[in-house]
């Protein structure tokens, strides 16, 4: 394992030290392991809280700030945060208007946020939840824990965050978040596995000519392993999986997130984006907004995910609303 770290156990904490140093506009509580907007709690504003295992940076802490999250709860690497952390975040951001949890659909995340919601309720904080489960590589059936939350998480955080910033109440913000999730589908392909600092070795093995199709953002092996294909074919298979699960009619608008999983250079992401843009154009879908870069990552995994969100004018308006966070910034 080759990483810029001091000790596997200290990675999350020491990265938070760096985050605090780089972003004085955030309040980083190393004790509680939470990252909070410096101006929270803000009277009349519902508090938007997300969190999950670390290793997906900039998600979530990189999206704390004006127009997006009020607080992030980073867990250990690939391990959901604990209820205490999430409760501490709720206390830090609740101004009496309640909080909204944005939770990626993993057994651990769901249970820990659920426990935190109960603890928060005990303290008189109203909690609503958005469950993100956009990864169509997983079949959504009673035979699985359900679809995973991946790339759409940042779309939910951006769009629900914009409504919260405008003064939307907790019920509306949660409902909007759910609507964004329902309109979104993601699919990922990895060229290499990732290595958690604690494990010290890759989560799975891939041959020099293989790719993992439908991989998870925690290095969970995917749907299947295949021979590596040209970017064009990978794009085709990815988009087919997405549109099969969540069709978009010709003429409709979409927000497209061309996301790198951590170790894929931007030149490849742009090349892929060109392929996807061509395919979507052929399908008559209009890419109204796009992002190309590393937003929801998986440590040092070489890979990519595509998220397509069917958008209407309200979603686009909220997408365009001002945002000022370490990893996403426009309009201010």
């Amino acid at each position: 394992m080759k990483k810029f770290i001091n000790h596997p156990d200290a990675v999350v904490r020491e990265a938070l030290v760096g985050l605090a140093a780089a972003h004085p506009e955030l309040r980083v509580d190393l004790e509680q392991q939470i990252v909070v907007r410096a101006d929270a709690p803000r009277a009349g504003k519902v508090g938007l809280i997300s969190g999950g295992g670390s290793g997906h940076e900039p998600l979530h802490a990189g999206f704390v700030g004006l127009g997006m999250l009020d607080a992030a709860c980073p867990g250990e690497v690939f391990t959901s945060p604990v209820p205490d952390q999430i409760l501490a975040a709720a206390k830090a951001v609740d101004a009496g208007s309640g909080v909204v949890h944005i939770v990626k659909n993993y057994t651990g995340d769901v249970m820990n946020f659920q426990m935190a919601a109960e603890l928060s309720a005990d303290e008189g904080i109203e909690v609503h939840s958005v469950l993100v489960d956009d990864d169509v590589a997983v079949e959504d059936s009673t035979w699985t824990a359900g679809r995973r939350g991946t790339g759409a998480t940042m779309l939910v955080e951006k769009i629900a965050g914009a409504l919260a910033e405008e003064g939307g109440d907790a019920v509306s913000v949660a409902a909007l978040g759910t609507r964004v999730n329902e309109a979104s589908a993601s699919f990922a392909v990895a060229l290499t596995p990732c290595t958690t600092p604690a494990a010290g070795r890759p989560g799975f093995e891939l041959g020099e000519d293989e790719m993992e199709v439908g991989v998870g953002i925690h290095g969970e092996p995917g749907r299947r392993r295949e021979k590596l294909l040209p970017a064009r074919d990978i794009a085709t298979m990815t988009l087919e999986a997405i549109l099969a699960a969540k069709p978009i009619a010709a003429g409709e608008d979409a927000i497209v997130l061309m996301n790198g999983l951590g170790a894929t250079p931007l030149i490849e992401l742009y090349l892929l984006y060109g392929e996807f843009a061509g395919l979507l154009e052929s399908a008559g879908v209009r890419i109204a907004r796009n992002l190309v870069g590393n937003y929801v990552t998986s440590l040092d995994m070489a890979g990519m995910s595509l998220t397509v969100c069917r958008a209407d004018p309200e979603l686009l308006r909220l997408w365009d609303a001002p945002v000022r966070t370490p990893a996403l910034r426009w309009g201010v």
Partner: peptide, 19 residues
């Protein structure tokens, strides 16, 4: 435990339980 979790999970079960 972590090795078992690597095969069908996310390589952290031993780390989690030990912590």
């Amino acid at each position: 435990l972590t090795t078992l979790d690597a095969a069908i999970g996310d390589s952290d079960h031993g780390v989690n339980m030990n912590r």
